[in-house]
Design a protein around this nucleic acid. Structure first.
Length: 457
RNA sequence: GCCCCCAUCGUCUAUCGGUUAGGACAGGAGAUUCUCAUUCUUCAAAGCGGGGUUCGAUUCCCCGUGGGGGCACCA
């Protein structure tokens, strides 16, 4: 195990979204790549905005995506507790160090961190008030992605609120020191905060960790970064919709990083092997749900049949598709197998397979008009009914053979029978092979539907 | 307003000074398949502008412009 220690430090004040997931992912990847330790720390110092429910969302989402933490809540470790709300004693201890060093003062009941340098009163246009500026020297941020960044922190800032609770900047740095974090990998939105953090590290007399500020994910439409309110922003939504976590992780890894060549679809072990901080891009990336959907489809297509069946089963259960009871296992299995190579996402499954499970499906009017406008569908239907009364329906090949022979005898093509049969049996013009549909549905249902539809012509 | 970061097809990106600027998603056209989807072929599509440095800049530097982020007793 290497000395690298990284942490993901979410605040349970909202849902777990794409941006957080990618920050977690890059931390996790770096830990796995270096053989280091991935720490999960919960930043719940803002009592007003926290909830247990949000905490579980974080745990569930991380686990679903396959990012198990090495230290943290439920896992233990030598530097716990891992929830900031339980670390008051540690913050008090560190606050005393700062006080002893003469780097704090109180004002309006709050504790301020005192910067070093000459002070002057300046009117701040933005905040419309007079503030005290400090002629500080620039903080040097050694960023693994952006290189050397300098920024001057020129105002004292609050580290403990008047109600006694410590502020983010303070606890964040204290915990990174106490938990021996070596690399701080976080979103670029924190880059401007980093000068505060560097000042604190220096005030504590400890070495400043390496930083890596990763680019942000911009919302798909409109300006700005993606937030939890944006369409497609929540991890739990992908979970609910039956997306494959491997696909989501693969997609996320490619937002701001690449393996250095043309490869996109890669197993996680390969991503871990190739991932490194200097390879991360510096510019923000716009979220693209189409590309995610495509990535998901490629993963879905190569999923082993048993695995796909289980995902389908779970999805049908969650969506409560079968209100009147589950279909027979072998039947369900055959339907799902038929749909597997044809769909782009698990969420399409119920609609795609509906007519397999009920007689109560609608005939699409547009498709009906289109199919009935060509050839002699009524005659074809009658011939098909006649054929299927006795034909061998035990295999797709046998069915295809029978229909082809029939078509040949009338100097017609397979398509002349396919379209009208499909419409009668499924109500639409999209679906699995007609032979597969016949085989799985069985003679009785197929004939009944063909006859029922024929009666409307 | 001040500070910080960034800049290649619509989008994600490759290129570590010399390339017909490549790939992927999305889009167009075609082929294959019983429909649809897949798959395959193919087309269209990019170096923000201006200055430098250099024999030569997408690549290095500067200035604009544009985009993003930050400037709380939120995290």
């Amino acid at each position: 195990m290497s000395q690298v220690r990284v942490r993901f430090a979410p605040s349970p004040t909202g849902f777990f979204h794409i941006g957080s997931a990618r920050t977690a992912l890059f931390n996790w990847l770096y830990a796995r790549h270096t053989g280091g330790t991935f720490v999960l720390r919960i930043e719940d110092t803002d009592k007003e905005r926290n909830s247990e429910e949000f905490l579980n969302v974080i745990y569930d989402s991380l686990r679903w995506l396959g990012m198990e933490w090495d230290e943290g809540p439920g896992k233990g470790g030598d530097f716990g507790p891992y929830r900031q709300s339980e670390r008051d004693a540690i913050y008090k201890e560190y606050l005393e160090k700062l006080k002893a060093a003469g780097r704090t003062y109180e004002k309006d009941g709050a504790v301020y961190f005192k910067l070093l340098g000459e002070r002057s009163e300046v009117f701040d246009e933005h905040r419309k008030k007079t503030v005290t500026k400090v002629a500080n020297t620039p903080a040097i941020i050694d960023d693994q992605i952006r290189g050397r960044v300098e920024r001057i922190e020129d105002e004292d800032f609050v580290i403990v609120r008047s109600d006694g609770s410590p502020v983010f900047h303070f606890v964040n740095v204290v915990d990174d020191i106490a938990m021996k974090i070596t690399h701080v990998i976080r979103g670029e939105d924190h880059l401007s905060n980093t000068s505060k953090h560097v000042e604190l590290f220096k005030a504590f007399g400890v070495p400043v960790p390496k930083f890596a500020h990763i680019p942000l994910i911009l919302k798909q439409n409109g300006p700005g970064k993606m937030s939890k309110r944006d369409q497609g922003a929540l991890i739990e939504e992908y979970q609910r919709r039956g997306y494959l976590p491997e696909a989501l992780v693969n997609f996320l890894s490619l937002l701001g990083w690449n393996p250095g060549d043309d490869r996109e679809k890669m197993p996680i072990a390969e991503i871990i092997r190739l991932f490194d901080l200097p390879g991360v891009n510096q510019s923000n990336a716009r979220f693209d749900d189409k590309k995610l959907a495509h990535m998901n489809m490629t993963y879905l297509l190569e999923l082993p049949e048993e695995k796909f069946l289980e995902l389908a089963r779970v999805y049908f259960e969650k969506q409560n598709v079968f209100t009147a009871g589950w279909p027979a296992e072998t039947y369900f299995r055959e339907v799902i197998a038929l749909a597997h190579p044809k769909i782009k996402g698990i969420e399409e499954l119920p609609a795609y397979t509906k007519y397999f499970f009920t007689e109560d499906f609608v005939i699409d009017d547009k498709v009906r008009a289109k199919v009935l406008s060509k050839g002699e569908p009524k005659a074809r239907l009658a011939e098909l009914i006649e054929l299927l009364r006795t034909a061998d329906l035990s295999s797709d090949l046998a069915i295809e053979d029978a229909i082809k022979k029939l078509a040949e005898s009338k100097s017609l093509g397979f398509g002349d029978y396919q379209a009208v049969a499909r419409l009668a049996v499924s109500g639409t013009n999209v679906g699995p092979s007609i032979t597969g549909m016949f085989r799985v549905l069985g003679r009785e249902k197929v004939l009944a539907r063909l006859e029922r539809f024929g009666a409307t012509l």
